[in-house]
Amino acid sequence: MKVLKNRDIYNFLILLSYILFFLFLSFSGHYRIFVKKFYFPYILIGTLILFSILLVTLKRLKTFREISVSDISSFIVFIFPLILVSLVRPTNLPIYAALKRGIQTEFISENILKSLREKIETEGIYKKLNIKQLLAFTKSKPDEINGKDVIVEGMVFKEDKNKEFTLIRFLITCCAADATPLGVTVEYKEEEQKKIDLKNEEWVKVKGKVKIENNKIKIIAEEIEKTIVPSDPYLY
């Protein structure tokens, strides 16, 4: 029981659990559910500092310093997020977040277009583009994209049982807190609707033709295929 009253035991446990958690995030790549790749070195630096503090705390375990109520409350606060994340096990931002933030159907970026012209991946006659690239083309160079065959991936958001749905991807600058949902409308034929039962949150790969009307993009789907959540669900 005396061990449980030593404040350094609690500090040691906090430090150890966060070191293990950060190491798990870094080496499994799961940190990308929460933040951009840019933060990876910072997570490692943070872990290194935690490890150095842990070594100093380890040395102090031999001396007994009695725990206070404030130390216990700190311990509870620090452990709460770790228990939460291990129970919730999040994978990526759901459609709910897109609806709360408002789906953007416009995006301007000349830089994307410049780099894209140099290299666009293709699959047969289809050009592989993501939602951000499609919206950037629609805004700046609609003639270059109108009528083209494209492949695009995203999450399904279907409001009702009509022939359209919105394909969504979250655009991230630093972390999931600043994620902006980008969306394009997909129209699919009756045969396709019978063939595939689409539900919200499902990830799909759409092959189809781009149609731009009144500066709004729509994809007329020729083929829709369900797919798994990509290892990196966000766009940057």
Partner: peptide, 18 residues
Amino acid sequence: KLQVFTIILFAILIEGFP
């Protein structure tokens, strides 16, 4: 809602802790 809450909380913590 719990998924969004957890993801945003951890986004803030992973960004802030280092």
